[in-house]
Every structure is written in structure tokens, then in C-alpha cells.
Design a protein around this nucleic acid. Sequence first.
DNA 1: TACATATGATCAT
DNA 2: TGATCCTATGTAA
Length: 271
Amino acid sequence: MPEGNTIHRFARQHNRDLAGRRVKASAAQSRFARQARALDGRVFERAEARGKHLFHHWRGGPIVHIHLGMFGDFYRRAAPAPPPRETVRLRLATRDAVWDLIGPPTCEIVTAEEYAAILARLGPDPLSPRPDARRVIEKLERTDLPIARALLDQRIVSGVGNIYRAEALFVTGIHPLRPASSLTREELERLWGAVTRMMRRGVGQERISTIEAGDRAAARRGGRRFYVYGEAVCLRCGGPVKRFPLAGRTAYACPVDQPLTASRRRGAKSR
DNA sequence: TACATATGATCAT
DNA sequence: TGATCCTATGTAA
């Protein structure tokens, strides 16, 4: 169940294990068997992460587009690995390492044009080398969507998922339901800062924790990895965390540390 | 064994 | 908004 940080970590690991090598490709599931045969024995050029999308570039042209959705995952096994389970969509093997891909809604060979089209509809990725923060902030300023909905819109910013939206909004003190256009420039800049800071840290974490320096001791005492995500009580104030559906997902917020503005409270009664 | 749940996104209505 | 795709895991029964 990956957000952009996990996809970027996989890209690094795949580059380390596979880039520049001739790779044995196979599929335990028939639905990708033909494509796997087309890749088998080719040289794996490089892996590339863009938001939550992963691309494998193969020598000779094929580009494999992978999206892990909710359930997709990669498993690394030391070589030689036992035969793949039936759920393995794609296995990439060298003499030293084996990567199994499980459960992706998307795993397909795309043309250069299709690849370009996918990139074109993605907003800036906080994990790219020099993300265009201004473009994200300007888009947010121009939308009336609740900020928590806008953060999951991959056309605005790519790679943010449910954990980072909850936690970045918390540390910036912004309620998820505030319209993006109601945030000040200063709030948007702090929000972008929190998103990039947390996600960059997340690339190196097997298990995500978003706790920032000043709160580490309290988090350790409580055995906590998050401020509000999936939690019953707020790490800072101890009050109950509110949870509600938003953009098809569960949103989390501390009503004390993330107040709605007065105008918002008057203006909108529901949702 | 069954069921709920999960860090996602798309398409139909 | 709801149905759909995709799988592993933890808990309840």
C-alpha cells in the first residue's frame, strides 16, 4: 500500500539490483506471460519513479508501466529464489537478486507516446530532484476543493497519499476540509515544506514515521509513528482524533490543533 | 473459515 | 457516489 516514497525506494533498489544487467523475466500469472516473454533476456536499463508510477526502461525500447494501487507490492528475495507463488505477476531475476511483483492493478508495456502522456498528466513530484513548488502552490490557490482532496489529486501534486496528507496537514495546523483557495500563501508554503520533508524522509523508511524532531520523545513514549493518521488520540494534545471519509478515503484530523476557520464554520454545514 | 481492512485510481451512473 | 480491480494480513468466529 504505497505512496510516492515507497515507489521511489523501489526505483532505487531496482536500479541497484537490475540496472545494466541482463534479466530473466517471467510471470506466474497468464495475464502477463506474453509480455514477460518479450522482456526475458533483455538488459534492464533503469527504473524511474514519478509520483506513484514506476517505469522500467528496457534496452531495445520496451517501457513497463507499473502502478501498485492499494495492494500491489514488490518482494525482494535472495537468489536463487523458490518458484513464484501464483499471485506473482512479474518476476525479475538476476544471479544475485529476485524481484517479485504482486497485485498491481496496472502492469503493462507502454509506447513512448503513452509514457509521455502519463507523465504529462502528473503534477510536480515532491521527490523529484527539483520539484516546481510554485506550480503546485499556484494550482492550490486556484481550486476551491477541500485541501485534503486537492492533495490527493495527482494532477496537482503527484505521490502524496493518505498518510502524508493527514500528517502534513496536521503539522501545519490546517484542517482537511478548508478550501485550498482559503489558505494563505504562507500556509501553502509550510504545507509544501512539510510534504517534501516527510516524504523525503519516507524514502529511506521501511515503515513510515512522520514524527518531527521536537516530538520524538513523546512519540517513543506512546509507541507512536504518527500524529493523527489511524490514531484515536492526537499525539500533541491528547484529544480525540476525528475521522471522516474524504475523496473516497478516511481523513484524520485533530479539531484542536487543526481548527476550521470561522468563515468556513459559518459557510458550510456539511461534508 | 470468514470477514474487515489497507499508504490507489478509474470508470459508470 | 458506487462498483470495480488487485492481494495479504490480522482478528473474529
